[in-house]
Design a protein around this nucleic acid. Sequence first.
RNA 1: GCAGGGGUAGCCAAGCCAGGUCAACGGCGACAGACUCAAGAUCUGUUCCUGUAGAGGUCCGGGGGUUCAAAUCCCUUCCCCUGCACCA
Length: 940
Amino acid sequence: MDAKSYNYIDIEQKWQNKWFEDKIYQAKKEKQKKFLIHFAYPGVSGYLHVGHMRGFTYCDIIARYKRMTGYDVLFPAGFHASGIPSIGFAKKVERKDKNTINYLKEYGVSDTLIEKLSDPFEVVKYFGNVYVNDYWKKFGFLIDYSRIMSTISLGYKKFIQWQFYKLKEKNLLIQKPHFAPFCPNCGPVAVDKSETDISQGGSAEILEFTTIKFKMKDGTILPAATLRPETIFGVTNMWINPNIIYVKAKINNETWIVSKESLDKLLYQLDDVKALNETISGKDLIGKTCMIPMINREISILPGPFADPAVATGIVMSVPAHAPYDWIALVESKTDIEAITIIDVKGFGTNPAKEACDSLGVKNQTETEKLDIATEEVYKKEFHTGYLNEKCGEYAGIKISDIKDAVKNDLISKNQAFVMREFSEEVICRCGGKVIIKQIPDQWFIKYSDKELTERSKDQAKTMNIYPKEYKNEMPGVLDWFDDRACIRRGSWLGTEFPFKKDWIIEPISDSTLYPAYYIIAKYVNENKIKPDEMTEEFFDFVFIGNGKPQRPIWDEIKADFDYWYPVDINLGGKEHKTVHFPVFLMNHVAVMPKEKRPRGIFTHWWVTQKGNEKISKSKGGVEHIAEAASKYGVDAMRLYYAHVGSPFIDIEWDPEAVTKYKNKIANIYKMINQIGKLDDKSDVNLDNWLMSTLQRTIKKTTDAFNVYGLRVATNEIFFECQKNIQWYLNRGGSNKKLLDNFINIWTKLMTPVTPHLAEEIWHRAKKNFVSNESYPKFNPKEISEKEEVGEYLLSEVADDIAEILKVTKIKPKKICIYTSPVWKQEIFRKAIELAAENKLNIGILMKEIMNDPKMKIIAKQVTQFVGKLPGEVLKLNENDTKRYLINIKEDEYIEKSKGYLKNIFSCDIEIFNAEDKNIYDPADKTRFAIPLRPAIYIE
RNA sequence: GCAGGGGUAGCCAAGCCAGGUCAACGGCGACAGACUCAAGAUCUGUUCCUGUAGAGGUCCGGGGGUUCAAAUCCCUUCCCCUGCACCA
């Protein structure tokens, strides 16, 4: 039989059909012990890939384990339909984007359906179905499918609005200015790596330039933008591009000179900006002077053709001692201006910029590559180890890394500077226009910076099960760092209407914080037992917080459900959620929900990557589709792969060959179990006890591992160690039918959380009910047989030692003699171990104790020899070894009974002697080397 | 810049928090044997170096330290990866 004989396609389909027909997935309130687990619901904007299944699979494994260990399990799921993605997808279909159309056709989507998918709501509906039927059900997930919901349903929106009423009540909704990416043609756009809204610049960051106002003699302002405002003390001149035409503008009753591009940006960022229709050539500014604010030193304006009108204001202040670009430009200007050094830094002399340029051999401004290196070097050194020197007035002696904001804030408060925001690279909208940064003066935020909220959230986090533990340690820091978040946006995207400002929509992170609570309600909405209209503020107040009175009996029913199932025991999501979703999930619960309803656990898992450690992304292609993979490898094989190939907390590389191995593994287990059924019945008490004993150990280990979600550890025990044990049993000639049946039943239950289809198939050879509904085996210490464990250990050690000798000596054995340790050596060993446990072990004490025994005195010479090096060895023993020595077994008898096995593997005569017996065959005088659990060996 | 994770034998990957059970779980690959007409699958064994008696040596990115004892603790250094907010 081979892999082909295990028809996983039919088998998996069969059991899924039966589970779903019987609705075993439906959460029921029966055991008064509940477990609520869910995964961070996926967005719906395309097909998922094999990487997404990792987290979903973990969730199902945990849920299945929990349902087998006495919990009522609620495992719901839904779709995050808010935001841009589905709109983006619909837009692509609408504009007949070739890739998108092909992508859909590849999956066999009909032309009429494709037509429909230009509507984002249809996109959500279509992919929602795909996820449920082609992914979740196909993987055998026992998700409670009666609770499926989406974030753009009417009921959900009512729920989110309620959440925002609560936040407002608690003063956690605030308004302040905000700066966001904006396309003058299309409105707000998202700048992100997936580039849904934009065609270029997905990884751009928003930089904050401190723009310092230098005043000319006539009062006109030259605003120079810098990322290092503290260097203002070292400014020696200004750079103006002589080849461009600058424009004038009236800003807050001041006249400013800036580049044309700059003015366009400022119009969106500052309140009171008026273009003056007046221009001035850069050339005409050269030779004039202006004043450095705060310091009041006059400097001259020099030609700097490198001043880019597209960057910030197009006007640059020059700090030649600390900026390599400025230094080289100054050298090339051939003026007699001297650099002013204002930072003392280790490893540099009086002019860091000059020194960096010299060491790299920079000759002129065109060597931008070298200049960038020099800039970085100077900046890094100065930032970490530099101090402002005596030329910096009140700031003298302060470390650079501590100063930045002080100078900036000082300048701003004196109206001598302002912040101008700029992308780190050019961002182009899908419409082709340039994306700029626009001020929204009264943006709404959720106030995550709130001190009390943060502290209460940290307290909650302390009580939670957060995995991995590194993340638990990191969580307080994340909560401290988490700042206010703009929570609404105007523009085209899906979501809930913000109740306090017409036409604005709540943004998708903010509408996905309390959502597991909605799963409780979704069931009633889906079953039409409550209508969204009825879901008022009073309704949610009553159900979630217990305020007010029920208006209909169903309210009580829903509340009872909520009280039973909530809080969330595990919220599971990818590592990308660590600094985004999980903190807001936690903080919103803390802000809105009563204490006993706050989350108990978070589990983060890492990703499945493509070869070369790239994140799998739809756009990069090359990775297998879920349905395809499921039929190619089998669902159980994939589940086992996810659980076993690495711990949950590392990225794994998708590797078709590895998955194939797991596929073979599944078929192999099935085959092995079937063959066991054909064996002749025969019992061997020692061996049988040993097998049961190891099985109990397996149960213990897997239970311990599963209880802390150590899926890899548990899986390794069940699918590898356990199989190895039964293999040893069979190789040793074990064949007790009743025992094997029992073993297989228990083993099958152990497998069920990970490979439920295989387990169900094996289970149903003899049983009619679902193994998925069975209880997980419980560890029974009574079935542990330490003697047999030691016996089999001894046997395998002897076999290993013989093999080692044969390997080294290259002897072909005719006869092997085994001499087991005399009893008196065992006694001395035990004595030594006892003394070691009391921390009293040394040769003197040991000898004294031993010699109390008259029979030892008779063989005093042998005893002395044996005891000599013993203490050192005994002290090195670990717990397992020590335990083994303390168990009293008759070594010669045990090996004698297993002689057949040794004969078999070494194909020669085996003779076993007790070293204590007289007149035994011992030509090489090996007897004296026999020690406990380490018989002497002689090979002919 | 801020914050976090990581470097383990040919490859993947446990172990590190609670030092000794570690030549270092497990898997893959490779090699040998069994089964088979054969291939695949499966089973058994080997797979750092040395070794004609079950042994010894070296090893967990580099360097240093603490300790009777370090992959594990401390210091230092090099390299890789991830997140950073109106993207989910």
